[in-house]
């Protein structure tokens, strides 16, 4: 597969992730959408890594996965805390603070 195709796939994934964040109301789904964005970036990194013949990109991809895991852990904990308090994970109901 050529670099262009991989970048196209990565862009498509990134767009899906962005649209997921913008359109979905469920906090967990938004979290998943963010993960898709990060994975799109990972894909691009690895594609570039292969294209350039350097290992640096793959190393960053590992870092990104680690960070994504940490983010997911923290994110799920926050969602859990909110669910305990409100019995809902709809982000649109979170607007006590505005203006």
């Amino acid at each position: 597969m050529s670099l262009v195709w991989m970048l196209t796939l990565s862009t498509a994934l990134f767009t899906v992730g962005v649209l997921g964040v913008l359109l979905r109301r469920n906090a967990i789904v938004i979290l998943m959408a963010v993960e898709i964005m990060l994975n799109a970036a990972n894909l691009a990194l690895i594609a570039f890594s292969r294209h350039l013949g350097s290992a640096d990109g793959q190393i960053l991809a590992f870092f990104v996965m680690t960070v994504a895991a940490a983010e997911a852990a923290v994110g799920l904990a926050i969602v859990l805390a909110i669910f305990r308090l409100r019995k809902s994970v709809n982000v649109d109901s979170l607007n006590r603070m505005k203006w």
Binding site: F14, V34, M37, A41, A44, F48, L52, V74, V91
Partner: peptide, 20 residues
């Protein structure tokens, strides 16, 4: 968290292109 993670996505994606 949500917005931070969202913006991190942009950052990492940008880093990937700078790397490329």
């Amino acid at each position: 968290f949500l917005l931070g993670a969202f913006s991190t996505g942009f950052l990492v994606y940008g880093i990937a292109f700078l790397y490329g």
